[in-house]
Amino acid sequence: MQDRVHGTVMPVLDITLNPGETVCAESGELSWMSASIQMTTSTQGAGSSGVFGALKRSLSGGTFFMTNYTAVNQPGSVSFAAHLPGQIFPVDVAPQPGYGFLAHRRSYVAGTTGVTLTTGFQQRLGAGVFGGEGFLLQRIGGQGRAWVQLSGEIVPYDLQPGQVIRAHPGHIGMFQDTVQFGITTVPGIRNKLFGGDGIFLAELTGPGRVWLQSLPIDRLAHSLTPYLPQNEGGRSGLFSN
């Protein structure tokens, strides 16, 4: 099995499989594939063996169905394009501290058959935050290789034991499972009411690596709102006087 990432701003992950090799991706992720690749879609995959496991996976921000892509009789390739400007990169996963990861929901692209995908953290942060869905993290575990996509530029931090970094939750891309994670509030009443940075902050405590992303999806959506069609008369803010 070989993998290659094409492009820069809107990358494409291309995975070349030898006969009999399989990668598992969430449903709807496929961009293109060669004729020798066989697709099998079911509730199984990414560590779940039935409907109950698929339901737990969907609650973590994943999809209810997973698709296995297997090379049959001859080598083949399958490709997955990024949803947003950003980066796609691999991580090697193992059942030992530091080789499991927690990642923002919908960051998982694909993984080998031994990789599992479950709920890592879930907390509601109030109406209007992240579309009212709350804050979700997916736990990427098991054994094998996984590929993740994070949006915007990626800034990694290697935290020492006890070292703390606080960030807007949307900037949390991924971190090693040795990092302690929690949600705190912005200090000070004036900061909460007038700071303009929201009420909640994610707090991460080392040791371990943290990957922060510069383009949270909620901020991108907020930036695009003035240019979307308006309800009145179907006029768009982009072309209105």
Rank of each mutant, 00 (worst) to 15 (best):
G234N: 08
H6L: 15
L84H: 09
T8C: 05
Q123A: 13
L136I: 00
D177L: 02
T205D: 01
A127M: 13
A221Y: 06
Q122N: 12
L220P: 00
I217T: 15
G62V: 00
A167V: 15
G195Y: 12
G98F: 07
L159D: 01
P207K: 05
Q143I: 03
P226I: 02
Q230C: 08
V91S: 11
S60I: 03
T63E: 11
I37K: 07
E153M: 13
V109W: 07
G196A: 08
R106D: 06
L117M: 15
V109P: 01
K192W: 03
G20F: 13
G134Q: 12
L224F: 04
Q163D: 10
T113P: 05
P97V: 04
A54K: 04
H222I: 06
S49I: 03
R105V: 10
H171K: 07
S60H: 07
R166D: 14
G131W: 13
I15S: 00
R190V: 15
G234D: 14
G162D: 11
G131H: 13
P161R: 08
P169T: 04
G233F: 08
P187F: 07
L30D: 01
F181C: 01
M1Q: 08
F130I: 05
S58T: 15
D14S: 14
A94W: 03
T184M: 04
R209Y: 07
I183W: 05
P90S: 01
Q143P: 02
V72A: 11
L228D: 09
M66W: 08
Q96S: 15
I189L: 06
K192D: 09
L220K: 06
Y227L: 13
G208K: 00
